[in-house]
Nucleic acid binder design. Structure first.
Length: 662
DNA sequence: CTTCTCCCTGTTTTT
DNA sequence: CAGGGAGAAG
């Protein structure tokens, strides 16, 4: 047989549309052009990490790798979409078929695609945190652990324990021993309750967030045909924000990469801020052990911030107890010294920030280029009032979200039983909304639905059950008639939402009569969200996995020019973003670090959090804190600046004194 | 068994 | 500030 050898050199000398060498620095170029084998990119804040990933996608496509063979796992879907959009722009199209999203959304898609092979129902429902707590509560009640004479951890606590166990990969007993010593006496029941919760989910086709990762990892590990198929399909893997992955995500990464190990992880240990949910920044350090032959690339040149800002951020992170990386530098000249502004109290802090924002706007900085960041969502409450008063439009990201409000969840629950009639958690929720129906009657109906003679279609003619009579029965029948009418195969999500709303509106007016109008406005918004979808299953999965991150309250100003809004955000939600001017408010001990962060690891994580906040700024960085804070127990107490600023002297951080106009 | 009311808690961060 | 839990009345 004749052979013909393609010479490497010929393949590599092909011409690319993009002049990579001209558009990237040396380290970035190396990362972009190293396509095969494991690569770890340790990328400092603002060092062009997104750019690198974007160009690498483009490079892969230009080299001839089909877009659908590339997977880009990021922390949010938005991040993935943004990178793919930019890659497509570079290429003039062609990156659209790249698979991009979060680990959770990737797991969702894969598990659904393979559901049949795994012997699962076609349609499973994803439980968000509060749904899973509701399910835990049902298990708890069934075990008789809710009686008054018996003190037993609340559903939130149980949810925390169970989730921590999964995300840290340890047993429930270990979690209780380490973090909930006072509950050690109840351990046996805590474990029993968990067993019931797990069985319940399985029976009902329910997966919580942790299950998505757990199932994907376990199936990849145990089902060779599944793993092989995915490895063949997805030949190039990129994982962003690797410092915020947990052990499950690290396992998934390795299992997807397979022997070929064409995997690039990008991250920065100094920006690891999700330890509380099981992320372990040591993942990034052990990457080379896990993938022998890893090429290590460090991106240290910062393109985002001025040197005075970097001086401050370097000083903050220099105090970190453990740290593996580097000091960032920039070649940019100039820049103004960041400021530290104490104010007498929260009110004046708000007034100061508002006034400075107005000044910046007058100087020509667009509102979209300004952000106010904070440790905890409630730190901005006072400021929100002041901004509204000053007529400054803003969006708030992070904290309590629109999608989590009781009324939105109610509507979602109706849609979910249509999608998955076995979803007992949602059944409970919507049955309890009916007049005359309490936990007992709801349980009776749910049991009936699960029994051989029960069905959604039969609900409209239900003859009656113990505890379900009169008004309650009428309500149940009416609900049954409504739901039986809804056919997700024939009607699209917007129509389904409208049908549910027609039923739910009077319910809402009865249950929340005080603020019904406000809640109805939210629901209109929700209806708008549904319009983008054709499939109910898809819509529901997205609402659970990547809901709009807008907080309750939404955009304040109605007449703001399109998109011209200020950003308020928790630092967690600001990850990966940047602005011309950044305010970080309430940088006071007790708030930042939060008093709830007690042990050393948590304090270290908070330090990195402040680092993340400050590295978001390009030109202006202004830190503020109130000199007095209100404490519920103690009244007004003096406050001191965050301990993280102790080592940042006035030479780096200009102290500013506020004066009040007479 | 449901519903009402009152109290209390406890408020980090998110997929 | 509300959402949940406990206790009492219908």
């Amino acid at each position: 047989m004749a052979t013909y050898t393609i010479r490497r050199a010929a393949a590599e000398s092909r011409s690319f549309r993009i002049d990579y060498a001209a558009e990237l620095n040396a380290a970035q170029l190396e990362a972009v052009t190293t396509l095969d084998g494991p690569v770890l990119v340790v990328a400092g804040a603002g060092s062009g990490k997104t750019r690198t990933l974007t160009y690498r996608v483009a490079r892969l496509v230009e080299t001839g790798v089909p877009a659908r063979a590339i997977v880009l796992l990021t922390f949010t879907r938005r991040a993935a979409q943004e990178m793919l959009r930019r890659a497509s722009a570079l290429l003039g199209g062609g990156a659209d078929d790249v698979v991009g999203g979060t680990f959770h959304s990737f797991a969702n898609v894969m598990l659904r695609r393979w559901a049949r092979a795994f012997g699962w129902p076609e349609s499973f429902t994803i439980l968000d945190r509060s749904d899973s707590e509701d399910a835990i509560q049902l298990a708890r009640v069934r075990l008789g652990l809710d009686r008054r004479d018996r003190r037993f951890p609340r559903k939130q606590t149980l949810g925390d324990i169970y989730s921590t166990a999964v995300n840290k990969g340890i047993g429930i007993g270990d979690v209780v021993e380490r973090e909930y010593v006072h509950l050690l006496d109840d351990l046996e029941d805590i474990v029993r309750c968990h067993e019931l919760y797990v069985a319940y989910k399985r029976e009902r086709g329910l997966l919580d967030y942790d299950d998505l990762l757990l199932e994907l990892r376990d199936r990849l590990r145990d089902r060779a045909e599944f793993a092989e198929r995915l490895q063949q399909t997805y030949r190039y893997l990129m994982v962003d924000e690797y410092q915020d992955t947990n052990h499950l995500q690290a396992d998934i990464t390795a299992l997807l990469a397979g022997k070929r190990a064409n995997v690039m992880a990008v991250g920065d240990d100094a920006q690891s801020i999700y330890g509380f949910r099981g992320a372990d920044f040591k993942n990034i350090m052990s990457f080379p052990d896990r993938f022998p032959g890893t090429r290590l690339i460090a991106l240290e040149e910062n393109y985002r911030s001025t040197q005075p800002i970097l001086d401050v951020t370097n000083a903050i992170i220099a105090q970190a107890r453990e740290r593996y990386s580097k000091t960032l530098y920039t070649r940019r000249g100039g820049g103004v010294r960041p400021q530290l502004v104490p104010s007498p109290d929260d009110r004046l802090q708000s007034l100061f920030v508002t006034q400075r924002i107005l000044e910046l706007a007058e100087e020509g900085v667009p509102l979209t280029e300004i952000a106010v960041l904070f440790r905890s969502s409630f730190h901005s409450f006072d400021l929100e009032l002041e901004l509204a008063r000053a007529g400054i439009p803003f969006v708030k990201r992070g904290g309590f979200r629109f999608i989590e409000t009781a009324h939105v969840k109610d509507v979602l629950a109706h849609l979910r039983v249509v999608d998955n009639p076995r979803d007992a958690v949602s059944w409970h929720r919507i049955l309890l909304l009916l007049e005359g129906v309490g936990p007992r009657a709801a349980a009776a109906v749910v049991d009936w639905l699960g029994s051989p003679e029960g069905s959604l279609a039969g609900l409209a003619e239900l003859a009656g059950l113990p505890g379900v009579r009169g008004q309650a029965l009428a309500g149940v029948r009416q609900l049954g008639a409504l739901l039986a009418r809804l056919d997700p195969a024939r009607e699209r999500p917007p129509a389904l939402v409208q049908a549910v709303l027609a039923h739910y509106r009077p319910v809402l007016e009865r249950v929340h009569h005080d603020d019904a109008p406000k809640r109805l406005r939210d629901l209109e918004q929700f209806g708008v969200l549904a319009e983008r979808y054709r499939s109910l299953t898809r819509f529901l999965a997205d609402m659970a996995l990547e809901p709009p991150s807008d907080s309750v309250g939404d955009v304040m100003a109605v007449d703001a020019p399109e998109g011209e809004v200020l950003t308020l955000s928790t630092i967690h939600s600001a990850k990966g973003l940047e602005w011309h001017s950044v305010f970080v408010i309430s940088v006071a001990d007790g708030r930042f670090p939060s008093t709830y962060s007690m042990d050393e690891d948590e304090i270290e994580e908070e330090r990195r959090l402040l680092y993340v906040a400050c590295t978001r700024a390009r030109e202006n960085l202004i830190l503020t804190y109130p000199a007095t804070m209100y404490d519920r127990g103690l009244g007004v107490v003096p406050a001191r600046p965050s301990r993280f600023l102790d080592a940042v002297g006035p030479a780096l951080l200009e102290p500013v004194t506020l004066l009040e106009e007479e």
